[in-house]
Amino acid sequence: MDPMHQFEVQPIIELPALAGIDTSFTNSSLWMVLAVGLSGMFMLMASSRTALVPGRLQLMGEMAYGFVANMIKENVGTEGMRFFPFIFSLFLFILFCNMLGMLPYSFTVTSHLIVTFALAAVVFVMVTAVGFIRHGIGFLKLFVPSGIPVVMVPLLVIIEVISYLTRPVSLSVRLFGNMMAGHTMLKIFGGFVVGLSSAGLVPLAIAPFALMVALTGLELLIAGLQAYVFTILTCIYLNEAIHMDH
């Protein structure tokens, strides 16, 4: 009953290494494929009908589209719409991975730091590139806060640079930490329920069971919320790189 057992990556099909990288199809790969397959199918089916008055599925697809599109318009502005496909993919991918992770016996792709860090690194590289492409070397002014005494400038620049560089870490650890902690907690309470019941102490198992039900609801909320948080932080970083105002 190791609560960390659920996070183990186990190969399903061993595949030969490609350019020195292991490409084995694992349980993590399976759930990534499922998340992408489900979200992709959902959006494809939702967008296959182009009725003037949408049906249920079409409306759901359009709402998901509108949700992310409005998020970008409000936080970045219309210039940000160039990054809409990427941000929309990010949102759907994280949302579906988190939600599928709530299924019993499933694997939570986003509970692995390497995955969330890779996503955050892509965001970081993209945002930094956008900043330098739009503002050239002037993008470095982002690290010099305006309206402070000259003596303080070196210290604050160091702080600003560190805070900028730790963004991918905070972005990835936030998602990974939320997912891992939630699932570990569920597993621990699940372990209590099973352990107490098998020891013949069923009445004592009621409390952890009730707590587990409540935590499952909370985890569902967190699964949605963290997808939203990751996406909106991406928008905020992008806005800073495009408009350089903070």
């Binding site: 990556v9 190969p11 290494a17 490609l18 990288i21 292991d22 490409t23 084995s24 199809f25 694992t26 993590s28 790969s29 990534m32 494929v33 998340a35 992408v36 979200s39 992709g40 496909p85 990427f86 993919s89 759907l92 991918f93 792709v109 692995h112 390497i114 995955v115 890779a118 996503l119």
Partner: peptide
């Protein structure tokens, strides 16, 4: 496990994108 995870992340996320 990093190699496999990163490889499949690239494939899956790329396909979705």
């Amino acid at each position: 496990t990093f190699g496999s995870q990163l490889f499949w992340l690239l494939v899956c996320f790329g396909a979705l994108y």
